[in-house]
């Protein structure tokens, strides 16, 4: 598949992690299995393993983020790598430097790995095509396109609680149109064999031909989450709340916000997920976010292990 050729080498090994699309199921399972071993590292007194000792990792964020950058930083440090954080949005590009020039400059500082976030879809692919052989790129979110480590940590979370993907009904709720998280989840869930994958939201927040990604589209929340094993809520960006796509945050919450009353339509043991940061009272009600079915905080914990797994695989080549 041409789509995976940038990130998967001719030998079938992962060179970069840019998208979950095209990742073979066995590779995803291998990443999750590797993450399993790293979960225990976080529980130890000394939370470090020497796998990436001597490696230099650049966290290059062209778009602001605290949480994702921090979890990558923690993951890198637990692997004993040297990690440098750069908020490029505030420096080089505002001086007119091109994206590739920024990358070439950092590469000249002997970077081994780039973790990149950028507001433009495809930015990570562009960088991966231009770095030196042996330098790995991890996409930490590019525009609306992909956020593969988030997708993978969500797969880890689902596997942790549900064990098997082959009989699951999963719903993704909210702003699918603008969500790189939703896209990364959809590709991974399809690859892992989820038989019933739903997206729920108003027509204004659904991208064209989304059903061709293998999902069923629902516009009614109750219908959509009926019988679900997993309910994934998406973050609604502030700037989308009042405008041509949605009349108000309040109306969105009324129609698509996850409340205890709506959640009863899912299976009794359904889990509730959210990639964070949450808008309480917009996409999710506090009693649900903090309730017994919520696995939102374990997602964050697993996220570090999954990022350690990906970085160790890419950094030890």
């Amino acid at each position: 598949m041409s789509r995976s050729s940038v990130q998967i080498g001719a030998d079938g090994r992962l060179k970069h992690l840019l998208t979950t699309e095209g990742l073979p199921a066995e590779m995803i399972r291998h990443i999750l299995d590797t993450a399993d071993q790293f979960v225990s590292v976080g529980e130890r007194e000394v939370k470090k393993v020497p796998l990436l000792r001597g490696k230099t990792i650049f966290n290059v964020f062209f778009e602001g983020s605290t949480r994702t950058r921090t979890t990558f930083e923690i993951a890198a440090k637990r692997l004993s790598a040297d990690v440098i954080n750069l908020n490029v949005g505030a420096s080089s590009t505002s001086k007119g430097e091109t994206l590739l020039d920024t990358v070439y400059n950092l590469q000249a500082m002997d970077a081994d790995m780039f973790i990149v976030r950028h507001s433009q879809s495809g930015a990570a692919h562009l960088i991966a095509r231009h770095v030196k052989p042996g330098v790995a790129v991890i996409n930490a979110g590019d525009g609306r396109h992909a956020h593969p480590t988030q997708g993978l940590l969500d797969m880890y979370t689902i596997r942790h609680y549900k064990k098997d993907f082959s009989a699951l009904t999963v719903a993704i709720v909210g702003d699918v149109l603008h969500s790189r998280v939703a896209r990364s989840q959809i590709h991974a869930l399809k690859t892992l064999g989820v038989p019933e994958l739903r997206v729920i939201g108003p027509k204004t927040l659904m991208p064209a031909a989304v059903e061709r990604l293998g999902v069923r589209v629902f516009h009614d929340m109750t219908e959509g989450i009926r019988g679900c094993d997993v309910v994934i809520m998406l973050r609604l960006q502030n700037e989308r709340m009042n405008g041509a796509l949605l009349p108000s945050a309040g109306e969105f919450f009324k129609c698509y916000g996850l409340t205890a009353e709506k959640l009863v339509h899912a299976k009794a043991d359904a889990i509730v997920m959210h990639p964070g940061p949450m808008n309480r009272g917009v996409e999710i009600d506090s009693p649900v976010a903090d309730g017994r079915q919520s696995v939102i905080l374990p997602q964050v914990t697993f996220g570090i292990a999954v990022r350690m797994a990906v970085m160790s695989m890419l950094g030890s080549q």
Binding site: S121, G122, D142, G143, R183, A208
Partner: peptide, 15 residues
């Protein structure tokens, strides 16, 4: 184009 490819790649679409 506002179709499957733009949806997959997360590109702003022209209908």
């Amino acid at each position: 184009h506002d179709g499957e490819v733009a949806t997959r790649l997360g590109l702003h679409a022209i209908p």
